[in-house]
Design a protein around this nucleic acid. Structure first.
Length: 271
DNA sequence: ATGGGCACCTGGCTGC
DNA sequence: TGCAGCCAGGTGCCCA
């Protein structure tokens, strides 16, 4: 999936087309997403205008006149804008048909994504209520991270992918941020020195900002709402570069597995 | 409280 | 050509 930069790129891409538009109708072709879409969904959402489009962690929040839509792209989801009469393709699970003959179409081969409706404050939804700070906010700083990691024995790579520590950092950017901060991914989170925590905070912010600027990372199937890939892949230092020379020191990049996810690092640059 | 492992899915690639 | 096995941008839940 899309990590934070891909979700933010999606938000920016669709916002101009959907803000203040009314959702004329909803077409659910496949309700079996991460959480099954209930039959009542289309009626609850249809007829409402989209007042705001926000992102929290990797969730997109469409604020409606009454309640909100909460959308997650999962591992393989994407949103595209297209004419509402365009024929649906495989895995085009849901359409939000707008009042200007444009439709926002959700495609997700693996169906790990989700689409929820809530009548209440979406930030209080059980899936969102306990999330850690946004990485690009001032709240995510060295003092905060030091407190969050104190006493933790888990590997730092897994710690920064934990949404109770910081949100939005997935498998690509966790490896990339640790490379930029020169920290070995297997180090115990609670053993980092203050200076390393400061470097890591800055590295997380920098890599996410750089990736947003490039329109996100396309590895396989991620596309932005205009159907275009993201260009950050060309700027990855370690992710999926096993055996290739480190771009800083030419040492071959190593790969390991942590929590059933691949991790990439430079054994020379990262200590 | 913390950490580890599994589950949910489809599709693309590799190697026999 | 076919098929088994492995891997993939996430994360909630269950168990020790």
């Amino acid at each position: 999936m899309p990590e934070l930069p891909e979700v933010e790129t999606t938000r920016r891409g669709i916002a101009p087309a959907v803000l203040d538009r009314t959702i004329e109708r909803v077409v659910v072709r496949e309700p079996r997403l991460r959480w099954r879409i209930p039959r009542s969904f289309a009626a609850a959402v249809g007829g409402q205008a989209i007042r705001n489009l926000r992102r929290r962690a990797k969730y997109l929040i469409f604020d409606l006149e009454r309640g909100a839509l909460i959308l997650h792209l999962g591992m393989s989801g994407s949103l595209r804008l297209m004419p509402s009469d365009a024929p649906p393709l495989t895995h085009d699970h849901v359409d939000l048909v707008l009042d200007n003959a444009v439709c926002l179409r959700f495609n997700d081969p693996r169906r790990f994504g989700s689409l929820l409706w809530t009548s209440k404050d979406p930030l209080e939804h059980p899936l969102l209520a306990a999330l850690a700070p946004e990485p690009l906010s001032d709240e995510f700083n060295a003092a905060y991270l030091a407190r969050a990691l104190k006493g933790r024995r888990v590997a730092i790579k897994q710690a920064i992918m934990n949404s109770q520590v910081v949100v939005g950092v997935g498998n690509i950017y966790a490896s990339e941020a640790l490379f930029r901060a020169r920290i070995r991914p297997r180090r115990a989170a609670g053993r980092l020195r203050r200076q390393e925590i400061e470097a890591l905070v800055e590295a997380v912010k920098a890599v996410l900002k750089d990736a947003i600027r490039a329109g996100g990372t396309t590895l396989r199937d991620y596309i932005n709402p205009d159907g275009m890939p993201g260009y950050f892949r060309q700027k990855l230092y370690v992710y999926e570069r096993t055996g290739e020379p480190c771009l800083a020191c030419a040492t071959p990049i190593k790969q390991l597995v942590q929590g059933q996810r691949s991790t990439y690092f430079c054994p020379q640059c990262q200590r």
